[in-house]
């Protein structure tokens, strides 16, 4: 059994998580039969997909040895701008330029984040915190003066809340994002350079890598992922709203770290991040099916993250 398991093409964190998730699924399904019903599973996949897209972006930044705390208001800003543009030009197809506007917002925020970190050399933790606060300020300010109409475009609604073969469309978006990211990380020079810069930036720079450009690119990818998640969420909810991104920042980081990516950068597999998202989503759904109060959810969540991450680091030390 162990021998078979060790031959699977996954690293230790991914395997441990897959095991933990399978255990959760079995225990959950045994205690609560509705757990295995296809509609329920589809619903869980749907809520996991939003987190998965955020975590994909967070992973790129964490691989670079940095962190992006501007996720919440990047999501909100992209969703707000996109739905406002749709509101101004509601004609079919023309309204899809709202999606482009939202993506542009995400890329722009990512570029600003990357500029501060790569060129001004300000610690990413504090710089992205500041950009997050500025974004919040801008949105709060404008929402007070202009009654922006908030309407998702047909594309956003279709991808955010539609279903195909009873599988939520947003899951397909997550799969597409994952495939693109896997391609970037594994098969492009940018992907290799992301790992290099994350491992040791001075060495990467001395080897001729444009390390500042790589940092900016990483933050732009993260910004675009946040923007996509924000717009999809607006499509799902039928509108954009303030604080829509707040519940995605910490779980996004936790999913990446649970998946075995080192916060020091340079090490981590995307499969682990996907497994981390699944585990967190499963955990949340078991707790809500048990009707656990919010407080219990938070405590369980913290204990699981500490146990899993502590297990990895101790294992690494003693193996």
């Amino acid at each position: 059994m162990t021998a078979v398991f060790a031959r699977l093409p996954f690293d230790v964190p991914t395997r441990s998580i897959v095991m933990a998730a399978a255990l959760l699924l079995l225990v959950g399904g045994w205690q609560y039969p509705q757990f295995f019903s296809p509609p329920y599973l589809a619903q869980q996949l749907q809520s996991g997909a939003f987190l998965g897209i955020v975590a994909a972006g967070a992973m790129v930044v964490i691989l670079l040895g940095h962190i992006d705390l501007s996720v919440p208001w990047t999501m909100t800003a992209a969703a707000t701008v996109a739905t406002a543009v749709v509101g101004l030009t509601p004609e079919v197809l023309v309204s899809e330029k709202g999606v482009l506007a939202g993506l542009a917002v995400g890329a722009a925020v990512g570029a600003v984040n990357g500029f501060g970190v790569a060129y001004l050399r300000i610690p990413s933790m504090i710089w992205t915190l500041a950009t997050n606060n500025v974004l919040m300020g801008i949105l709060v300010y404008f929402s007070g003066f202009y009654a922006l109409s908030s309407r998702p475009s047909p594309l956003m609604s279709m991808l955010g809340s539609g279903r195909m073969f009873s599988i939520p469309n947003v899951v397909f978006v997550w799969v597409a994002v994952s495939l693109i990211l896997l391609f970037i990380l594994r098969s492009t020079t940018l992907g290799r350079r992301i790992y290099m810069v994350g491992t040791h930036e001075p060495a990467a720079y001395l080897s001729g890598v444009n390390s500042r450009g790589v940092l900016v690119a990483g933050f732009v990818i993260a910004g675009i992922c946040s923007a996509m998640a924000g717009m999809l969420l607006a499509g799902y909810a039928g509108q954009s709203y303030q604080r829509m991104g707040d519940t995605y920042l910490l779980p996004g980081i936790a999913a990446v770290v649970l998946g075995g990516t080192s916060l020091f950068g340079g090490r981590g597999n995307y499969s682990g991040t996907v497994a981390g998202v699944m585990l967190l989503t499963l955990m949340a759904s078991i707790l809500s099916i048990m009707q656990a109060p919010e407080a219990a959810k938070q405590i369980v969540y913290g204990v699981v993250v500490i146990t899993m991450v502590g297990f990895y680091s101790l294992r690494e030390r003693y193996s």
Partner: peptide
Amino acid sequence: GRMQAIIATLATGTIFSGIAL
């Protein structure tokens, strides 16, 4: 536990918030 401070305190922080709630 040899954990990075960011993720460790993030996790203990959610536990403390839960107890506060």
